Simulated scan of single mutants.
Amino acid sequence: MRVCLTFSTVSMAACLVCAGAAMTAPVFAAPPITITSQASTDGPIRYTVKVTSKQFGNAQETRAIRSGQSDDYTWKMTPPGSAIQVAEDCPGYASLALDANGAMMRQIQLRLAPVVAADGTANVQLSFQAQAPAPRGIKGANGAKQTDKALKCPASITASQVVRFTMPTNGRSKTLTLNDGTQISLTARR
Rank of each mutant, 00 (worst) to 15 (best):
Y47L: 02
T48H: 01
R2V: 15
A159F: 01
T158I: 06
K50C: 03
T34C: 13
D71I: 03
I33M: 07
A14M: 12
N58K: 06
Y47R: 00
R106E: 10
P154M: 10
V27L: 12
R106C: 14
R2T: 14
K76A: 07
T187M: 05
V51N: 01
T74H: 05
L151D: 02
M12R: 06
I84R: 00
P79K: 05
N142W: 13
R66Y: 09
R111Q: 14
V116Y: 06
T121V: 15
D71A: 04
D180C: 06
G137E: 00
N101K: 15
D71K: 04
S82H: 07
T158K: 07
V51K: 05
G140D: 10
A122D: 02
V10N: 14
T121N: 14
P135I: 08
I45T: 04
A159Q: 06
T158R: 02
A14T: 08
E61P: 05
G181A: 13
G57Q: 14
D42F: 01
A118P: 10
S40R: 09
Q38P: 00
D99L: 08
V116L: 08
F28A: 13
Q129L: 00
K76C: 03
V124R: 12
A25K: 07
K174T: 11
F28Y: 14
N142E: 09
S8A: 12
L16T: 12
K174H: 13
E88R: 15
A30W: 05
Q69G: 08
S53M: 00
Y93I: 08
C153Q: 10
A150T: 08
V163I: 15
P32W: 09
A59V: 04
R106A: 08
D148R: 07
T147W: 05
A118G: 09
Q38E: 14
A159G: 06
I108E: 05
G181I: 01
M1W: 04
P154S: 05
R190K: 15
T36R: 09
T147G: 10
A134E: 03
A188T: 07
S160C: 00
T187D: 08
T78I: 11
G81V: 04
R2C: 02
Q38F: 14
V124L: 11
T169Y: 02
G92E: 11
R136T: 15
L5F: 15
P168V: 07
R189K: 15
R106G: 03
R164K: 12
A87H: 08
T9M: 06
Y93V: 00
D180E: 08
A122T: 11
M23R: 09
R172M: 10
A144P: 03
A130P: 10
T36L: 15
Q69W: 06
K54I: 05
P133I: 00
A39Q: 01
C90G: 02
M77F: 05
T36D: 06
Q109K: 08
P154L: 02
V124D: 03
Q183V: 13
T36K: 06
R136Y: 12
L5I: 15
N123D: 11
C153N: 01
R189M: 14
A141M: 10
I84P: 09
C153S: 09
S173F: 11
Y93E: 03
N58L: 03
A87C: 12
F7N: 06
R2M: 11
P44G: 14
T6P: 03
